[in-house]
């Protein structure tokens, strides 16, 4: 199919772009060091004495808060800065194909980074008898979480040719997605608002929806939530790009 081969060409180019520059390797090393640090030191993996990856997944919403916008910030800003956006969008390619291709490439890259954390799975299996179904669910949740942040970054990246602004905007929006359901915040909110309101606000948070995955529950509602965040943010990316082109 034509649409698919266009998307494939764009994915290939984007992924190639990561690995021809040192960015990809620097990112992967930092990602793995940080996940290690949070899991073992901050999350006290060994002291817990549990055969689970709770201390690994718990930190992902916070870790991704900075790491994912760092990957996504260049998606469209770079195209605008270099002027290649004009080239890309005058090719026989629809804007949607370009948006999805770029998004998928970065998502695959993040999936690769996540896949490289496999030693932690081996470790926990070697030390004890974890429920690997729970671990699998955790990985699914983590990749959906990364995709949601990435879609937000794609949107903020389309707004500006300045990567720093794009990064900061996307961190702010993702931070909101965390805080809306972060316990200290919901606790504070429940003092001034009715439980119903708190619940509604928390329903917008990635924390609320990531929690199930950490417990090993694959709930369709959570999957739908992450899919809608991605769908909405990518749709917004398209709107932003269309408005810019219309002047």
């Amino acid at each position: 199919m034509n649409a698919w081969s266009n998307i494939k060409a764009i994915v290939k180019r984007e992924l190639g772009g990561y690995f021809t520059s040192p960015i990809a390797y620097v990112f992967l090393v930092i990602y793995l060091l940080l996940t290690g640090f949070f899991t073992f030191t901050v999350g006290s993996f060994f002291e817990r004495g549990e055969a689970s990856l709770v201390s690994f997944f718990t930190w992902h919403p916070w870790l991704y808060l900075f790491l994912v916008p760092a990957v996504g910030m260049r998606l469209w800003s770079e195209e605008r800065r270099l002027g290649t956006m004009e080239l890309l969008l005058t090719m026989p390619v629809t804007t949607w194909q370009a948006i999805i291709g770029k998004f998928l490439a970065s998502w695959l890259f993040l999936a690769l980074a996540l896949a490289l954390t496999f030693p932690v799975v081996i470790t926990v299996n070697w030390l004890g008898n974890p429920d690997n179904g729970v671990i699998f669910a955790g990985y699914v949740g983590s990749i959906l979480l990364a995709g949601s942040y990435l879609a937000v970054s794609s949107m903020t990246s389309a707004m500006t040719r300045n990567q720093v602004i794009s990064f900061i905007l996307s961190v702010l929006i993702c931070l909101f997605l965390i805080l809306a359901g972060y316990e200290p915040v919901t606790g504070l909110l429940s003092r001034v608002a009715s439980p119903r309101v708190v619940e509604v606000v928390a329903a917008f948070s990635v924390m609320t929806h990531f929690e199930g995955f950490q417990r090993g529950v694959l709930d369709t509602r959570d999957v739908v939530f992450f899919a809608s965040v991605m769908g909405f943010a990518l749709f917004a990316t398209g709107v932003v790009i269309r408005n810019q082109r219309a002047g």
Binding site: G16, G17, T20, L82, G83
Partner: peptide, 16 residues
Amino acid sequence: RLIGYLPENAPGYADM
């Protein structure tokens, strides 16, 4: 599909 286009300043992907 019928058009070949050279935009102003001939932009290209720097890292390719």
